[in-house]
């Protein structure tokens, strides 16, 4: 198989809100947040590692824009088989209320220009900010080809032909078959593979892998890259539109009421 290929995977540490969280102003207090690797990026990491395993000389580099805390997330990617990682952070980024798509594409774009990967894998969407846009915007930023919502990738064609033959998952169980010239950015959909759990050996090895940390200045950009024309002016819990009738009591009482409804609706024969 062809040698020497580089795959960049963008990974985001996403915030998950706890049940019973509170909003203060336009933010959720940190005490109600936990952090995790974005579900879609987990699949993207796996796809990159599978490419590396199928090829002779494929380097996998994980990149994140995130605070020091996110090293845990990026170590998870290293433990699963990424070779090294890049973390972008800066006081100007920390101060920004919202990292919009444009900012993220510019920051990640600079890394792409330096690393010159053949393929960039990102997730369809980040579960917290829910833009669903960073991968395609990044492709445009660096002049790569792209495909969004990819649920199958032909590894052989990538390694041997320099073409990404993908399936794009459309609505209603329909898939589009598309060929994309490399270099390209693919936004990876869940279910494309079975993400592995990191092995103990992987976790140990990850400790000695390199994570380079770059500021905006290191990337040759200026702080205004972190500015946004989007202002979050309000944040609130959506008003419940529920007119549901709730079944109260212990589980047995709840189940009895539910069973009555099912009999009433005549979907369960007695």
């Amino acid at each position: 198989m062809e040698s020497q290929m580089k795959v960049l995977v963008t990974v985001k540490e996403v915030a998950v809100v706890q049940d019973g969280f509170e909003i203060a102003g336009t933010e959720i207090d940190d005490t109600y947040l936990s952090y995790d690797l974005n579900e879609w990026d987990n699949y993207a990491v796996e796809e990159a590692v599978q490419l590396a395993e199928a090829g002779d000389d494929v380097e996998v580099v994980a990149v994140t824009i995130g605070p020091e805390r996110s090293e845990e997330t990026i170590r998870a990617a290293l433990a699963k088989g990424a070779d090294r990682a890049v973390r972008i952070w800066d006081d100007a980024i920390a101060d920004a209320e919202l990292l919009d798509v444009e900012t993220k594409a510019q920051l990640l774009g600079t890394v792409v220009e330096r690393e010159e990967p053949d393929l960039v894998l990102s997730g369809v969407q980040a579960n917290d900010d829910n833009f669903g846009a960073t991968g395609v915007a990044l492709a445009e930023e660096v002049g790569f080809q792209w495909a969004a919502v990819v649920n199958a990738l032909d590894t052989g064609n990538v390694l041997e032909e320099g073409v990404a033959s993908v399936r794009r998952e459309l609505e209603g169980g329909v898939e589009e078959l598309t060929d994309i010239d490399l270099p390209a950015v693919l936004t990876i959909q869940t279910g494309i593979n079975e993400p592995r759990y990191a092995s103990l050996r992987g976790i140990r090895q990850a400790q000695s892998k390199e994570i380079s940390t770059w500021t905006i200045g290191d990337l040759g950009l200026t702080e205004d890259v972190a500015e946004s024309s989007l202002n979050i002016t309000a944040m609130y819990k959506p008003e419940s539109e529920s007119d549901a009738e709730y079944f109260d009591g212990d589980a047995d009482k709840q189940a009895a009421q539910l069973a009555d409804i099912l009999r009433d609706k005549e979907v369960v024969a007695e």
């Binding site: 959720i28 917290d128 989007l230 944040m235 609130y236 819990k237 959506p238």
Partner: peptide, 11 residues
Amino acid sequence: MYGSKVETTVA
């Protein structure tokens, strides 16, 4: 945002 747990207004 956050899996539909929060609504925001973006101006």
